[in-house]
Design a protein around this nucleic acid. Sequence first.
RNA 1: GCGGGCGUGGUGGAAUUGGUAGACACGCAAGACUUAAAAUCUUGUUCCAGUAAUGGAGUGCGGGUUCGAUUCCCGCCGCCCGCACCA
Length: 954
Amino acid sequence: MTEKSNAPEKYNAAEVEPRWQSIWAERDIYRADDNSDKPKFFALEMFPYPSGRIHMGHVRNYAMGDVVARYKKAQGFEVLHPMGWDSFGMPAENAAIATGGHPKDWTYNNIDEMRAPMQRLGFALDWSREFATSDVAYYKEQQRIFLKFWEKGLVYRKTAKVNWDPVDNTVLANEQVIDGKGWRSGATVEQRDMDQWFYKITNYAEDLLEGLKGLDRWPEKVRTMQANWIGKSEGLQMRFELDNVSQIAVGQNDNLNALKEEAPINPTREEYIEFIQKALKSVPSYDDVDLNKVWESILNGVEIFTTRPDTLFGASFLALSPDHPVTKCMALNDSKFEDFRAECAKIGTSEEAISQAPKLGLDTGLRVKHPFIDGATLPVWVANFVLMGYGTGAVFGCPAHDQRDLDFARKYDLPVIPVVAPTEEKNKDSVHPSEGWGPEHNSTDLSTNALDPRLRGDGRNGGEIVEAYTGEGTLINSGFLNGLNKADGIAAATAKISEMGLGEAVTQYRLRDWGVSRQRYWGCPIPVIKCGACGSVPVPEDQLPVELPYDISFDKPGNPLDHHPTWKSEGVTCPTCGEAAERETDTLDTFGDSSWYFAAFGGSLSADGMDWDAASKWLPVDQYVGGVEHAVLHLLYARFFTRGLIDCGLLDLSHSKFGGEPFAGLFTQGMVTHATYALADEKVDKDKWVLPEDVDANDDGTFVHLPTGRPVLKGDIIKMSKSKKNVVDPDEIIKGYGADVARWFVLSDSPPERDVEWTESGVIGAWRFSKKVWSVVSDTTATHGPMAIASDASGDALELRKLAHRALEKLTAGIEAFRFNTSVAQIYELTNALSKYKGQDAARMEALGILIRAIAPFMPHLAEECWNQVGGEDLVYHAPWPTVDPKMLVDDTITMPLQVNGKRRSELNIPKDMPKDEIEALALADDAVLRSIGDATVRKVIVVPGRIVNIVAS
RNA sequence: GCGGGCGUGGUGGAAUUGGUAGACACGCAAGACUUAAAAUCUUGUUCCAGUAAUGGAGUGCGGGUUCGAUUCCCGCCGCCCGCACCA
């Protein structure tokens, strides 16, 4: 090679990258200005947990956000792109228990260790706004928020059945229990009754659901998952009056009936409770039973919830949950109920167990009155498929039109009464109304054998119902509902029940309130004082923060705050009455920490507090990027918190067209995967994985472990994980190839929402490309600056201009649409064209200027170095995004494909504005076209200007 | 079971108003340079037939709409993700 210019021959990332990073830092170019006149753009990636190492997933996540942040900056926005640490949580405590250190030291050491490689990646981050959620300043503000939420009625305390993780020794929210196991520990979750703090997320159930509709820049998948999680259903909540109550609470005795006769007329609730307590006073464990519900069931009837009141005439039983208060009450005095409850509990909570569990039932002997059929009663069963956690914990069973009810009815030989005749022809066979609409259904004896055969769908009437029919249809066998369709039937039945005073239309949500008490040390202390006289009292705001003590020990299981010799009670008095009191020792769920951190960035949170007005101005986050694993948990909590903060007057988002939404745009990126390799002759699963770099391929396609010579099998290509030994350390890649190469690789090839497979050859390809860009730049003798516009170009120069502007248009669209892989492809094309182009002229400089500014969001160090090399003004970071010249996108002559009967046979090079008839004439004269047509007759010629010509011949 | 998504060369993937299927990259092959290798550069690379020109087939499978379908519609098959006895 000969010397071509004054540029260094080789691009040395190890020298170039730190040099630019220190220039950026010195000039403080990434600091966001709260008072800028420019339109704002808030780019945010989900902040990391400081585990101690950054991994490739982080690199991909932050690289995507960085592309957006840098691109928006070049587009003229004032960009806020901050970084912080989600630093409270279990791993710090687990590490402390395992190694004898302190969670705080462990956490902050990790943060220091992770910050350095993150800075080596050269992200355009405003580090001046950095904080960790375990900083006292951060949790002080969070304690303020807790108290504000309390004032607003968004916080409450209650004893509730909670999910207890026996490994982490703490409570979990419903969202944190996955397949009956703790989301972090994987331990089977137990149910325990505990005193807990709750956030009233259900207040916003409707709003959180409604808000999803406006989030048009969120993935459909995430919106659907949240909507399903909120789980709205509209239906009828109604009571079935008990016909005989003697067995409730007293088993085989009937002194309760006697008591009922003693009951006062129109008693108050308290009188009811006192009354039933009297009845139960000989039973030791009645504390566990919700007596309100029991007594209401006795006096007013058993409450059920249904979305299908139109099928009430098809009801053949009522089913209670094993955990229903009435069931529990009966279990107190009758062991068969307790035995049944125990049997149900045995099934467990795992996904398979539940879905495969057989239907179990127990007849209580109670009967309820059918609301529409005078004199008819239905048996009341306890059934294991009825959940206490949804609706009222009781349902009515309509076997003909609900599969679970049908399974249950078949098992226990309960009647199956079809009441909906399918509308669709192909479903006609599934239900057999015998004649017309069927008889008026007013049979008072609903036992199977006594039923009019024309009401039966159990096979005794010629046609057996094999599958419950849940579709549209016409009501039959249904008295006053006969002939109505599903929707009208629901409306009519609901109206009738309301009129009878037995119930009303209600909306149910699956969403539960968010239990936030955690019996752990490393979290935000709940700012509450527990006073024997005054109960739970908020810590006055001027006494915040309630600070975590440093001197704690993990020598006992459980919560170190609870074991602390002084923290809980020494010098603690009740703010209300002044008497000695105790601190709340629970800490807040760490998901609360990540529910408002985006606001803290905008508000420049520091030891002096934060500026909520500034926070409001920066919100909503314009582009949020993170993993899809947070689709429900974090993203739902953050949406709730933002609404709460608005209602408390801390945030004002009245300027946002997204209402109370914190994240206007969301992108969920795919994972970084890598091949796994396992020793073929190793039996122990955890010992069989080997490092990919120690594996070599044999000529016959098998693999061998180099250090030991043992045979190796290639495993699945899966997410990088330490246990599978398929991790690649980003810092090693930075050292070997440079940060730009690591960034370029994770954005190339695969679409951002999909997984990208880490391969050695892919990294080398990215590395070669960076060298190629540098060689194109160093082959350039700068004749103009990189902002040149070669408006008088012709010939090859004009072709280069056209290619550059076309590439620019497409790559810009790619960034806008989060399709970075297509932007990367356009950058390749432009680079290839430039490396072939020989001219040292304005056209070269224009194309080069476009190229350098286009790669700047992806490979910022290389771009700065190139920009500097070709004489660009200032930093490329400050250079405006190049603009597309629309004239360069149109050609004077175009190539038009010629089709015969839809198959391409030839093409025409013609002026772009040639009239249709001339095109047609040329097409019909084309040799290849004539050959294809052969003997056939031309029937029709379709000319789509600028697109295609199709000749129809037969 | 319910909901969402996907199916294109040896591989990752392009083709976002129905208009040249396979851009770009990886891999592979051949060549140039080199004592040699690496690096770099050039060329080729959907499959089948043919030296070639060219012809035929082709976007999971089967139908349909259309001058024209990877794209729209109907019915299957397969894979992935989420939820899961939610009344």
